[in-house]
């Protein structure tokens, strides 16, 4: 996948932007490949997902971000990411499409909202006048996320 393109995915109505560097694959249908019995909520893992014959952890960032979603777990889309400890799955409501990096305009988080965003996101960009959050995977899964 080209590095000057970005993936936009959605949690509820909110858009997020993901660098493609660590994206392995986007899996649209996970219904037959999830095992919610294998969860570890302390690490944000809501299920295990079978991917390329291995079980990998699946993380739902909507829970951490307190975003309400109407989708059931089995109807979510999995974005498979490469991490320090191997692949892991990011469960999202919708993976929109790829956009050129130049499509995004930088946008400051207002001073008054900086405190509330701390720990969850640090950058927002505008895509066609819509704010999208720059998703930082390390905040949600992996050794640094556990430390938080």
């Amino acid at each position: 996948m080209s590095c000057n393109r970005r993936l936009v995915f959605r949690l509820g109505r909110m858009g997020f932007l993901l660098e493609l560097t660590d994206v392995v694959e986007v899996v649209d249908q996970i219904k037959n490949d999830i095992d919610p019995g294998r969860s570890d909520m302390r690490q944000g893992i809501v299920s295990a997902l079978k991917f390329r014959k291995s079980w990998i952890p699946a993380v739902d960032p909507a829970l951490i971000l307190d975003i309400s979603s109407t989708l059931r777990l089995q109807d979510k889309v999995a974005v498979i990411l490469r991490g320090f400890e191997g692949n892991w799955a990011l469960l999202v409501d919708q993976a929109d499409e790829l956009f050129a990096a130049e499509s995004f305009k930088p946008c400051e988080i207002p001073f008054l909202l900086k405190t509330s965003a701390t720990g969850f996101y640090s950058q927002i960009k505008l895509l066609n006048q819509e704010p999208v959050i720059v998703f930082e995977p390390e905040r949600y899964y992996g050794s640094s996320a556990v430390a938080v």
């Binding site: 909110m14 509330s116 927002i124 704010p131 959050i133």
Partner: peptide, 14 residues
């Protein structure tokens, strides 16, 4: 109006 996550309780959206 965009409902950014983790907004303070008295901020409805951005």
């Amino acid at each position: 109006a965009y409902p950014l996550p983790r907004l303070p309780g008295a901020v409805a959206a951005v």
